[in-house]
Design a protein around this nucleic acid. Structure first.
Lengths: 343, 343
DNA sequence: CTGAAAGCGCTAACAA
DNA sequence: TTGTTAGCGCTTTCAG
């Protein structure tokens, strides 16, 4: 049974190149991959043939033959508001930039938490956040595919992770408020299903505790990071009979919403209430008053994750798993005032 | 020469499954791909074997054998400020969501304009914006790879495109300003290398022309979409001896910067100057005064592009190329006032 | 330094 | 309905 070429797309193959250059496919392969040594003359002929034929090696054939793909996946769990979160784009930006630098292809997976994601054929994966999709990570680990988890500190899994010091950052923010003389400090949380949000809550509590301020549950408002829920929380908070004098909000975009609500109710920031956000979202600069916030090194985290993954993918030797926590930085602007002063 | 399996990763292959199930690889392939007919009994045995062996077909082998990959690429040219542009994430969101729905893998390519992008092995591509990378589009077209261009209207290339009515939107915005009685209307452009920016400028001019208002070049400020340049422009604009009473800004984030500068200079918006932006970026809601703007259907554009691409990839018959322009919508909020009134 | 040829794992045409 | 087997296009070992 003889078969005609299946592929009618006139794809030029390595064989065509070899023929035109008058060498074997092996030699062509060598010059393509810059492996082994090829006589200058032959090399030139091959290069020439490649150019003439506009040859481009088939990635599939390469991948099938080598078992390597040079593709990494960035898995971002989809949850309400992740797309309004500033955070996602920063991550994509950081990861995307370094992928280009390392000549890695980037597969973007905006997964549903429960979906069993399709990561077949990927050489490595970066998990951004683990919310309910821990099984995906375990799956990848069990398959021995290099991976690194970012924005989530995992202790009980043998995996590299790079996280942000959310608890520390939150604590510093609240400490700052306390230093200004505030005692009645509220907290609007993010979605506590994310580690970032729950650690920020933890940092908030820790700061209070260390300063012997009682934690008042009425001052803690849970949200899902959305502006809508922030608005609700702000509304309730500002109408309390014994309202807080300051509030630490788990994201800048929510903090801006709080500011907006305050304004609508005729309250002044920071005179009537001091606000600290989290993210260092540029939008924070353009409100009626510049937002004080906690800056987190998102880009660095993203970039480091690619570097680390790349190392994992190229270095053969098993290295100790690294758990890294990146520090945050308090950015003081205009949204807080010392209690008792008139600013 | 006998060779041991190269792949030490104990990959289980279709052959292993066939053996365990007591059928041929062809039959296994049939049940995997739900193609042809397989006796119920055999099907069950195969499914069982697959489960037992935890078999996952190699995408590379599949792709090599079929010539299809089910991967599409989203190409976003990298230019200053694209990442602060609100626009990029919206696109990624829209495209990402629909890719999941269509079970397509999404390759994200944040390309340098001059780089010859690596799109080998991709079944289709969506180009977001064409700025200097027109050759990439031509390249893909010449290879007969389905593609659609979004956010850029191309007339002279036989390619589907979905764009936004930037000129129309701009014109409507400026018309609105004129309706309010403004005559001295400035424009802060985006990066004119992008079609969006240049068409917005065009719309601005057209509105003026149609209303017999002279176009004053001193009132047109070119920027690259960045906040920094917006600031510079705003500063010059507001200090003019004969300052405009209104300004149409090519993006909301720049409009917010203009607002900020005005405020710093002790000017009030909209009392001293009216501002209209473009994008309907949520941030526009949280300034000292809510920003009037032009809403563009980014998500729809992104989603439609995937639908269209998918159609191109699946339907065999050549269809007429479609050129679509999506309408914008003027969103009136609080940043403009009728001239002569006191708001 | 070079070439022959055996895979890589799967699909699909063809025969049965 | 099922099995056989020739590719898909490349890499890589081994012999020369």
């Amino acid at each position: 049974m003889t078969r005609i070429k299946k592929n009618p797309s006139q794809r030029v193959s390595i064989e065509d190149v070899a023929k035109l250059a008058g060498v074997s496919t092996a030699t062509v392969s060598r010059v393509i991959n810059k492996i082994g040594s090829v006589r200058g003359k032959n090399k030139a002929k091959v290069l020439d043939a490649i150019k003439q034929l506009k040859f481009e090696p088939s990635v599939f054939a390469q991948r099938l033959a080598t078992g390597r793909s040079n593709v990494i996946a960035l898995v971002i769990p989809r949850y309400e508001g992740v797309f309004y979160s500033f955070y996602a784009l920063e991550l994509i930006r950081g990861v995307g930039t370094l992928c280009a630098a390392f000549k890695l292809d980037l597969l973007l997976s905006l997964t549903d938490v429960r979906s069993s994601l399709n990561l077949r054929g990927v050489d490595g994966v970066i998990f951004a956040d683990i919310i309910g999709n821990r099984h995906q990570v375990e799956d990848i680990i069990s398959k021995n595919i290099p991976c690194v988890v970012i924005n989530h500190y995992i202790d009980d899994l043998n995996v590299n992770c790079i996280a942000i010091d959310n608890a520390g950052g939150a604590q510093e923010a609240v400490n700052y408020l306390i230093t200004l003389g505030h005692k009645k400090i509220a907290h609007i949380t993010g979605d506590l299903v994310t580690q970032a949000a729950s650690f920020r809550l933890e940092g908030y509590k820790r700061a209070l505790r260390k300063n012997n301020i009682k934690i008042d549950p009425r001052y803690i408002f849970n949200t899902n990071y959305s502006r809508g829920q922030a608005r609700l929380a702000a509304d309730r908070l500002l109408r309390m009979s014994d309202p807080p004098t300051a509030v630490f909000v788990a994201s800048d975009s929510m903090a801006l919403e709080v500011m907006a609500v305050a304004k609508e109710m005729g309250k002044d920031v920071p005179r009537d209430i001091s606000i600290v956000g989290f993210d260092d979202n540029p939008s924070g600069l353009y409100g009626p008053v510049a937002l004080s916030t906690v800056r987190q090194p998102l880009i660095k985290m993203a970039e480091d994750s690619v570097k680390e993954l790349h190392r994992l993918m190229t270095e053969k030797k098993e290295t100790q798993v690294k758990k890294i926590i990146l520090p945050t930085e308090l950015v003081i602007r205009e949204s807080c005032r010392p209690l008792g002063s008139t600013r």
